[in-house]
Amino acid sequence: MLPFTMEKPESAEAAIAAAAGGARYIAGGTTLVDLMREEVERPERLVDINALPLGGIRVEGDDLVIGALARMSEVAADRNVQRLQPLIAESLIEGASPQLRNMASMGGNMLQRVRCPYFRMLDAGCNKRTPGSGCAAIDGLNAGHAILGTSEHCVATHPSDVAVALVALDATMRVRGPEGERSFPIEELFRLPGDTPHLEHTLLPGELIVELRVPGGPYSRRARYLKVRDRASYEFALVSAAAALSVEGGVIREARLAVGGVGTRPWRLRDCEAALVGKRLERPAFEAAAHLATQGARPLQHNHFKVELLPRTIVRALEMAGEVA
């Protein structure tokens, strides 16, 4: 680990001021400390934001508002979260371990780095870590990599579970930076790798995540998160799906669907959603919609199975959400 200096401001303004000139914010540190030890992350200055008043979970009208510093475990255990947005609670407890969930903040979770093994290896080419150094995964061992949103420069999957749920639920994010505050859909936080895989998100320099806002919808309480993996717990998803349905008289009125483990960012499936609306809450409709999910999929040498597994996971998640099997 490279030497660094640490500051601990007590207000957002002070933190933003402290971060000017390229310091990194640190909250739970579960990603950053791990990667600093590998020297994949090499910050010279850290700004510890844990003293900032950015925690807490509250309800505003139909919206659930989650502070950026709220811990994963705290959000998952919150009664309002469980009542209003069970999908978020379920995706949270399926992610990481109880210890890591006690540490990791919601804001940090959005910014966690990829799990591509070559990204962690200083002696392998990785355009995300070292722009221009090539991608060892494209011709390497890429079974865990993405089939959607890849480029010739990067094929790593986004690792977050709860981000998949948040993207499905049209959540927004409020950030504060040197130029003031702004809000935008969380989906817009995540960049596609394109030819700049080292740029992972759309935050401007010095911007601090303040809170996440999840609008309530008629589908919010009929929502499930399915994470498919070889080990029952403590493993990243091979494929995951967040599905939420609004149903009247056995007919789907509205659907929200996003998937993880297959995309270079949390992957919203609006075509699939559209295909579900107006259909009866039955497996054939799920299968027809799920079939659309792999349009544009570009499997690599070792992850063809995800093309098969993705629609199956979606169908199963829809069945779980629809409580039909």
Binding site: L148, W267, V307
Partner: peptide
């Protein structure tokens, strides 16, 4: 969704 819509689906085992 599906940014790479124009890309053809790669058939494979």
């Amino acid at each position: 969704m599906v940014e790479n819509r124009s890309e053809s689906y790669v058939q494979g085992p």
